[in-house]
Design a protein around this nucleic acid. Structure first.
Lengths: 144, 144
DNA sequence: GCTTGTTGCAACCTTAGTTGTTACGACTGC
DNA sequence: GCAGTCGTAACAACTAAGGTTGCAACAAGC
């Protein structure tokens, strides 16, 4: 499925900012988060930019700038993050229109569309059940 | 998410073979299916080859050769097809190991793994609820 | 045995998406 | 003005999917 790690990295960044703020800091820098996630700061800035557009985080510029949460972790779900960073549907239709003269070619897309919609709705429901506070709790619960 | 159409095309092929057999034919060729799906016969053969390895279809060679169902459409679910054609997990972890000296970097992978497993289990359960006979019924129910 | 139609499969190209990287302008606290 | 950080563009590297061509393997029918 060519799985991507965007949801994982976004959750990582949010958990990191949330923990950092709990420790009394105002803002976190993309540099710090990138070090924790072992990637490049630009990758983090790109992802957090999408989360900012979705209203999950805020950013400040200038000296002492960085990122902070726009809402409590308790009020953020994985669905919010998923919708912010994953553009398209889970399953795709044919890349080219199937033969409309064939019974199957004609009916397959509406059929699959209906089935996929139900499945994606269930997926969204599952993602909405997990808050970022749950994620951070699980992160901190990892045995040393 | 870079959605792919493998599941859609595989379901299309199975529905096509199933309908063709209901009409009294023994085997379907990749050429016929490719015409209906508006793609290349090799693409169909590659997909059906994976379904054959999963025990869903059989193939014959030689003149008058082609593909036939190995089981009834009623006993095949979208989960069977999904597992046959989709190799990896839905969500990926970090491509590089996060900073193990950081609390979040250390705990994020086990945390997300647990969450993702639950979600994928739900997805599989949903896919298992839909049989290929359901798909064919929906295909034939499309309004003209 | 030859012909023919089909699968099996390897090789290659194109396209698209993600990730990583560099560079530099914009902004702001000091 | 300086320094630190975001915002963003540009580009390369990598991966996966899909499309295409070519050809060997196979088997039914003659």
């Amino acid at each position: 499925m060519s799985a991507n790690s965007r949801l994982t990295i976004a959750a990582h960044a949010l958990a990191w900012i949330g923990l950092y703020q709990r420790q009394g800091h105002e803002v976190a820098t993309s540099e710090q988060i990138a070090t924790s996630a072992n990637t490049n700061p630009v990758v983090i800035r790109r992802l957090l930019g999408e989360l900012r557009r979705a209203g999950l985080v805020e950013s400040r510029r200038g000296v002492g700038a960085g990122w902070s949460l726009a809402r409590e972790l308790e009020s953020m779900t994985l669905l919010d993050v998923y919708e912010a960073v994953e553009p398209g549907p889970l399953f795709a239709m044919h890349r080219t229109t199937p033969d409309q003269g064939c019974v199957v070619g004609y009916g397959i897309q509406p059929a699959m569309q209906g089935i996929y919609e139900g499945i994606e709705e269930t997926l969204r429901h599952e993602l909405a059940r997990v808050t970022l506070a749950d994620v951070l709790r699980d992160v901190l619960a990892a045995p040393r």
